[in-house]
Amino acid sequence: MDAPVAQDDVVARVARRVAEVLALSPAEVKPGSRLMTDLGADSLDLVELMFLLEQEFGIRLTREDLSLSAQLGLPEEELRTGEVLTPKALELLRARFPAAGDVLHEGATRRELAALLTVEEIARSVRGRLASP
């Protein structure tokens, strides 16, 4: 059996792949870097990144792995009204991202959550898939 992948190692390997996809120097990519707003990733970059991480870690990622709203595990009607997040969803997200008041404002939409996708969050999804493929 392979040795378990160290937690910090996952973050470092994800960061390296992020730098590769976005043609940035590794020093520019920090664990807390937000992919879309800090690093300028677009949807094609995310898809390339997903693919490279699948290769690197031998896992299969799903759209839920890159979707913070899906990770809350709320039924759709408790998650959002139209695309606007419910107060309950916002409360859960604020507990998880205490420093993200800029994104988690009243009336925030599910789509805006993409702004919270950080290197660390992606590493968390990768670790989840490594633990239960």
Partner: peptide, 17 residues
């Protein structure tokens, strides 16, 4: 629109997505 950019492995990406 996509600006000129590198796509690391277009065949493999197409196969996946």
């Amino acid at each position: 629109v996509e600006a000129a950019r590198r796509v690391h492995d277009p065949l493999a990406l197409a196969a996946r997505f």
